[in-house]
């Protein structure tokens, strides 16, 4: 199973762990938007953003190796960016004996720089915020209650489903199933269907359990300390930096 989706929380304590989740979610999102708005040629702006991300990763309590492994997990998503210089047109630049598209190189740099910074931001959020806090944060951000409930249920049952799928996979392997081609995928697909039925029936049992405790259609709002002005100020600092850099770069470039 994909290890990339393991729970990413760092079980330590840091000033970042103590910031209210809604502030961190907004901060993370806006930071990524600021980075995305930065023109690709403003290398210095990305460098400053990178300093911000690295400092926050350190404050969050990531060890360098830990951070690197987690960055590596998203490599497949930017792999395509590496090919852009080879297939793009326009002027060519000679690099390491290869004739590459200049614009393609910039495009590739653009995707890689922005993705790495965005990934860093999401690692900081994921590393310092337990899932239950994320769910509460979404609630505080006035997300529609249905959405918050769906997210909460999703996280509650994700690991169970993944583990169950893993057990089914093991059971298949134990009986010699080692599919190599698409037309051998039937057992897996049927297992996925069976998994849906099981998940759904679990949903029905959960609903019974909820009714049994007086559920009347709306999830109760759980108590939660709202984010303090300090939390907001701290969370909004990185996006203020990334957005200001983007604006400065847009003006001077």
């Amino acid at each position: 199973m994909a290890g990339a989706h393991r729970h990413l929380l760092l079980h330590t304590d840091s000033p970042l762990h103590r910031i209210a989740p809604e502030a961190k979610i907004v901060g993370t999102f806006l930071f990524a938007v600021g980075v995305a708005l930065t023109p690709r040629r403003a290398v210095w702006a990305f460098a400053i953003d990178a300093v911000v991300v690295l400092s926050l990763l350190a404050i969050a309590g990531y060890r360098p190796r830990q951070a690197l492994t987690r960055f590596a997990a998203v490599l497949p998503f930017v792999a395509f960016a590496v090919f852009i210089p080879f297939i793009a047109g326009g002027d060519k630049t000679d690099l390491f004996g290869l004739s590459l598209s200049t614009e393609g190189l910039w495009a590739s740099w653009n995707v890689i720089a922005k993705s790495v910074l965005g990934t860093g931001a999401s690692l900081i959020l994921a590393g310092t915020t337990p899932i239950s806090e994320v769910v509460r944060g979404l609630g505080r951000l006035r997300m529609p209650p249905i959405v918050v409930s769906i997210v909460a249920f999703m996280f509650r049952y994700l690991d169970l489903i993944v583990e169950e799928m893993g057990r089914m996979r093991v059971a298949m392997t134990a009986r010699g199933h080692d599919p190599r081609w698409l037309w051998q995928a039937k057992p897996i697909a049927s297992a996925a269907g069976a998994m849906f039925v099981r998940s759904y029936e679990r949903g029905e049992r959960v609903h019974s359990a909820m009714l049994a405790r007086g559920f009347s259609g709306t999830m109760p709002q759980m108590e939660h300390e709202p984010a303090s002005p300090t939390d907001w100020a701290r969370s909004l600092t990185p996006p203020v930096v990334s957005i200001s850099l983007a604006l400065v770069a847009l003006i001077i470039l």
Partner: peptide
């Protein structure tokens, strides 16, 4: 109301 947990579990299933 019944389907909110069901939708959540379906989300976990798709995930």
């Amino acid at each position: 109301d019944k389907q909110v947990p069901l939708a959540g579990i379906a989300a976990a299933f798709i995930f």
